[in-house]
Design a protein around this nucleic acid. Structure first.
Lengths: 132, 132
DNA sequence: CGCACTGTACTATTTGTCCTAGTACAGTTG
DNA sequence: CAACTGTACTAGGACAAATAGTACAGTGCG
């Protein structure tokens, strides 16, 4: 469980951490019940402040991705998203719109976008979902 | 050309403007050669500071999306992305990875992601590209 | 129990960004 | 010339991010 962070990126460090954890789960390298590195351990490994790690873990818990247990550690949740269907759909649409718009300005057309997504999905299939 | 902005959003106003303009181009409601509203006019309409609009236009020009002509206005560029192929590919992959990861945590599977993208692309087809 | 670990909660400080406000200058258009 | 365009500053307020340090509270194990 090695998490890297780019201190020069304009993206806040704690947000990078949040995404890396979600990424690891979406790729199957972290699964429900798995334990994350401790706040202090991860801070030492990544050469960042423990408070920053704690902030990332706090955000992950707020999203329902992990649970934090005082004294024992942080663990990946089993359940899926707790959002209403309409809100989930809205967020997905926003993500897709982002991809389409930015992709277009990068010079990619509809087919290339579809292909890139398909390739990504077949390269590392999504782990099975455990819907609550 | 009406551009709306959400002052309560955590996303900076100037970034919202940048994306709105790119969105309009990707949807065909703005095309190469079209003129954007002036800095002061847009600022008045959206009830924001002219400096904020100027900042957005500056960012858009830095990305090659528009050109700014002192005294005459800002115009949508004809050309495509000026980035190296490898860099364009890398950015596209990052966008796709974002969609897949966040989509997964929203509870969507591979098929639903593909369908959402396909639906978006068929709803408003991308305008023809004028590659430089 | 006792110790070492875990997360949690503060305060304080520094740094950087976002946004607003105001002024001024420079190029373009009619 | 007059009225518009973008551009470039300064200044200041508000806020977020990250650091450092300290302290407290729950857990697990020898």
């Amino acid at each position: 469980m090695r998490l890297r962070v780019d201190p020069t990126s304009p993206e806040p460090i704690f947000e990078q951490l949040v995404f890396r954890v979600k990424e690891a789960i979406a790729q199957g390298s972290l699964a429900g019940g798995d334990r994350l590195p401790s706040v202090r351990e991860l801070a030492r490994d990544a050469s960042i402040n423990p408070n920053t790690v704690a902030r990332a873990y706090e955000a992950l818990e707020a999203e329902g991705v992990i649970v934090r247990r005082q004294g024992s550690g942080c663990f990946v949740t089993e359940k899926g998203s707790a959002l209403a269907t309409s809100e989930r759909k809205r967020r997905l649409d926003a993500l897709v719109q982002r991809l389409v718009t930015e992709g277009f300005h990068l010079g990619f057309g509809a087919r290339e976008l579809r292909d890139a997504l398909a390739e990504r999905l077949s390269a590392t299939p999504l782990p099975p979902r455990r819907d609550s």
